[in-house]
Design a protein around this nucleic acid. Structure first.
Lengths: 337, 337
DNA sequence: GTTGTTTTGTGAATCGTTTCAATTTGTGTA
DNA sequence: TACACAAATTGAAACGATTCACAAAACAAC
């Protein structure tokens, strides 16, 4: 039913090989032949069958990307970066989300292997990397994203969260803040504890700065609001003059509460800094100072790294780790007193 | 290099046909043969080649979905619904975004055709549906999503925005509000003008209700804030007692401004209702009443409709339109005086 | 007109899976 | 033991694009 190269060849009065050449290497074909074949293609409405192409080629022209949650802007930005890089190599990115379910992650991995993708970028759900090891042994390159692989055998692309935490608190100190609160949790999340570690490092460098931790059950607006309530319930002398939130959602929660009439003024009485620089950060009532991660670039570099590994072939499974530095974005929610 | 069914067959001492049967219809194969073949598969690390499968089948097991923006929760929810439905039919959804660029949209469409997808769901960038017509004529079913097709030849799945607007204002009237503001724009967006139309209809049904329109340049938090500023700048007697915002972002902007000390109390002095019921709506300082669209279900139904059409084959290009009703979600931002 | 060189065009073989008609094996009954 | 019938297995053909060794044509130089 569908039109094939053979049909086109017959219609144009040439051989199938020539049709294929017109499609792939038109400069190797006489100009008038190209025109003739193109005309036949247009007339018949021929559409290449990608499955046949891939079968012959042995590999698809795509890269798999498995993220934890497609609704998270962090991952969509990352995906966009990956797509942009892939396009440079005339490839495309297949996006899949695991929903943080190991089972789904596995299913997507199998799907990608069956598709014979050039490689897979993944933010693993758990620490069990066995399935990825197997896939790699079968010849599918793997790159971990947003995770420093404990397992040194996997290449990875990640962000230096310790540096981000340091950067945030350093900024607060530089604008003269002395009583700082870190709002975030749980500490079991590596990102959170790393950010706190960076914060502590900045505090240790300077005398006369205090750092208090308000632990949160999760990184949500609601938890941020709880932290805020806890702060404004205190007598004025016990209140901090700055809050470093483990992410922007928590920061926005703190802000909502503090801007109530009985709260504190931002940034004068309380300077506030978040983390991630999500889109909503800049549209908050007081534009939020935040730490931005080079999300787009991470996607780009991850793809480049993946293709470099694929290039190597079976020979030497070269392992590389790329760590990005975050960036301070100063807006209205932080200022000197 | 890669392992094929032939290798598995040799290793297991059976024919390729049997290996295929083990893979696809294990109940047609003797139990001990299945075990034998499975062992060989595991030992060799055989992974099915999907390209070859598809080539033989003539069609892929996927459905294409082209959305305007993957970052928009509306579309990710829709995609999720589509995925869920597809899974029922043992199919998968390929998600692509056009970024509202006609050229990209076209590229994705071609890609999908080359992949021999079962069909394409699309929210078209422009009114020019010519490329989709061509694709459909070549045998790829098309369903428009979130657009009532002016062109009656395309099947579609959409939401009744007039009903949503009616529902919102009806609710405001029922809780005793009389001076209502509609904040939103531009009116060139069909969704916006439809919602306003619904609002006007509700107002017309009751005596003594006024409806004022504050035009916005776009549906953003910033524009909502501008609308809010305009309201609280007025003397108390000239202020409305309710605002219906054309979407949640605008509503959140209005809320941010009104909650300032010199503003109005929500919901007492001012009741506020948004549209879309985005995730942030429920985490606002005052949880936002909103109109929810059955996004997930739209995705589900779109897939079902698509597959029904595909079922028909070339015979009769059956055309169907499904229109969903939105739903009122009452939270804290609306109440009686 | 012959020879050498480059440019175009040819078509059979190939990729890996599924299908299906034909064949073999197995089971139960007389 | 023979026969009928069901269950299990076989293997060649097919899907459609690409490749590549080879052939044909076109052109240039003498």
């Amino acid at each position: 039913m569908a039109i094939s190269v053979r049909d086109v060849a017959k219609a144009a009065g040439v051989s199938v090989g020539t049709v294929s050449n017109v499609l792939n290497t038109p400069n190797k074909v006489a100009e008038k032949t190209v025109t003739k074949v193109q005309a036949a293609i247009d007339k018949l409405g021929f559409v290449r069958n990608d499955a046949a192409r891939q079968l012959r080629a042995g590999k698809s022209r795509s890269i798999g990307l498995v993220v934890l949650d497609v609704r998270n802007p962090f991952f969509t930005d990352l995906a966009r970066g990956a797509e942009d890089a892939a396009q440079e190599f005339n490839m495309s990115v297949l996006l899949a989300n695991s929903d943080e379910i190991a089972e789904r992650e596995l299913a997507m991995l199998s799907l990608f292997e069956e598709q014979r993708v050039h490689g897979v970028l993944v933010t693993p759900v758990s620490d069990d990397l066995e399935p990825f090891k197997k896939a790699r042994d079968r010849g599918t390159p793997i790159v971990l994203v947003d995770r420093k692989s404990k397992d040194k055998n996997f290449s990875s692309v990640s962000v230096d969260d310790v540096a981000g935490g340091y950067m945030a608190v350093k900024h607060l100190i530089e604008i003269g803040r002395k009583k700082i609160v870190f709002a975030g949790g749980p500490m079991s999340i590596q990102q959170v504890s790393d950010r706190l570690k960076g914060a502590q490092k900045a505090v240790a460098e300077q005398l006369g700065i205090s750092l208090e931790v308000i632990d949160c059950k999760s990184l949500t607006v609601l938890e941020g609001r709880a932290a805020g309530e806890q702060i404004i319930a205190r007598p004025k002398t016990k209140r901090p003059d700055a809050v470093f939130a483990a992410n922007d959602l928590v920061a926005l929660g703190v802000m909502q509460v503090c801007l109530k009439p009985e709260g504190m003024s931002i940034p004068k009485e309380l300077s506030l800094i978040g983390y991630d620089d999500i889109a909503y950060a800049s549209t908050a009532l007081v534009a939020l100072t935040s730490i931005r991660q080079p999300t787009h670039e991470m996607g780009t570099k991850a793809v480049e790294l993946l293709l470099a590994i694929a290039e190597d072939g079976d020979a030497k499974p070269r392992v590389r780790h790329i760590e990005f530095q975050p960036e301070l974005v100063i807006r209205d929610s932080t200022s000197a007193k």
